[in-house]
Structure formats: C-alpha cells, structure tokens
Design a protein around this nucleic acid. Structure first.
Lengths: 126, 126
DNA sequence: GGAACCTTGACACACCTTTGGTAAGGTTTG
DNA sequence: CAAACCTTACCAAAGGTGTGTCAAGGTTCC
C-alpha cells in the first residue's frame, strides 16, 4: 500500500495540506480517493508535486499560470486562437512565408527526434 | 498618413485610452511613437486591438492570460519545462511511446501543409 | 497663445487569487 | 470510544488585475 494521506503527502513534498487541496481544485493534481473520500497520493503524484515546486521556482510562475497552460493544452480551439493572435505582428525582422515556418517546424522535429534517440529515458511512463 | 492617436484608436477599437496604455505595458501591443512621444496606432495595431477583444470574449480570457501566453512563446526554456510537466500523468488511456507522439506530430504537419497548399492567403503579411 | 490634444505618474476602488484558519461532521484505529 | 486523522464549507487577509480619474507638464494647430 504505497499511497499517502494529505498530511503525509504535504510533509514529504513541502506543500501544506491546504495547498494540496487548492492544487487539486485548479485541476493540476487530482489524487485518487479512498472509499470514504480520503485523498490518496501515490508515488506519481508525489513526484509531480515536487517537480511542480521546482517548475514554479525555476521560472517564477504561479499555480494559476500552470493551470492556464493546462487549459490551453486541453482546449485546442483556444490554443489555436491565442496562437493565431500572437503569431501576427510581433517583431518580424524579415518576411516569413508559410513555407519558411513549416521548414523551421520540421527542423525542430528533427532535433526532437535526435534527442529521443540519444536519450532513451524519454518514454512516457506507464 | 494613416496612424491614429490614442483617443482615436480607442474610439475605433472599443477600448479606452487607459486600456490601450495598459495593453502596451503588459507587452501585447506596442505602437510606434511620434517624434514627440505620442503613440501612433497604424492599421495593423487597430486590427490587432479588435481581434484581441474578440479573442478575450470568445474564450473568456483576461489580458494577463494572453500576456502569459506571449511570455511562454518568448521563453523557450519555460515553454519546454511547463510542457514537460503537463506532459506527465494527465489521463493516458494507453501507453504512448515517444515514437507514437512524433508520428502524430508529423501527421499534424502533413495536415498543415495541406491547408497551406489549399489556402494561399496563409502568408505572413509584410 | 489658447484649446485640445498628448505624456507619465499617482491614488483609488472592485474584484479575483492565493493562502491560512476554523468549524461541523465522518473515518480509522489502538 | 476517544484520539487523530479526514472531509467540505466558510471567513479573512495580503497581494495582483483591470479600470477610472486626476495632476503636472509637453505638443499641435487654428
């Protein structure tokens, strides 16, 4: 049985129980529940809670920022609309054609592929 | 001479002058300045201001949300870190390998390429 | 040269976010 | 069965956001 209650999880991740509930409420980490409704944090959730703290500290983000990123990722239409808006205007030193952009994107994928082949631990865990 | 002053721009876009300054301060639309420092809104900025209102209304976003998206797009390291964090855990019905993901991304690009070829007005404007 | 603009900066206010605390009540377990 | 957990639901305080307004001063233009 490797699942912790909310106080134990708070203890080992550095959050407060209050914040774990908040993080759940904004949709970032939703632990399983026991039969009687207790939150049960498994190893995956614990790891995620720790890396979340690093992420926030590293880039000076707030939980709301990450929640918004999640929303972006889940709502494809919104993502596209926002991207389309940002795509326009912002500082373009030279004219970029759609083909230029596609080539750039494809080169990016080549770079990712290389990273995947060099770094075998990039599988999505089961 | 097709550039409007801040009050005129406000008039035709539905924002207030106050908000146009705010939108500039958070980095979303930074109009050119006249010699004496007056903000000069060109047709591009005006269009962007209008579509910005639509974008916000359409998806119930705040200006801060769009500003954050801009920050994401400009700070590649942050973008990657956030994506990496979101990539983990969230509901994966079946195991997805890095190769699966790459294939999916490449098919997406094929779809985009098709769209580009069918729809010639997708050049980035000069 | 005065009216009607523009600039930045400040004060202000309503609302939302983030975080803490506390209260009323269910669960687990020695 | 009581201690020590858990739950949800509130109240609250500090800080951030979005917006208005005003002041002191520069610019444009008739």
């Amino acid at each position: 049985m490797d699942a912790l209650t909310i106080h134990e999880a708070a203890e080992t991740t550095g959050w407060t129980p209050r914040m774990l509930r908040y993080i759940e409420r904004i949709g970032l980490i939703e632990p399983a529940r026991s039969d009687s409704g207790y939150r049960m944090y498994g190893p995956g959730e614990l790891q995620r809670l720790r890396t979340l703290r690093e992420l926030l500290a590293e880039h000076d983000l707030g939980l709301g920022d990450v929640a918004f990123s999640l929303r972006l990722r889940q709502d494809g239409a919104m993502q596209e609309d926002v991207d389309a808006w940002l795509e326009a205007e912002p500082r373009r030193p030279e004219t970029v054609t759609a083909e230029d952009w596609l080539r750039w994107e494809q080169e990016k994928h080549a770079r990712i592929l290389e990273a995947v082949n060099t770094n075998p631990k990039m599988e999505t865990t089961a």
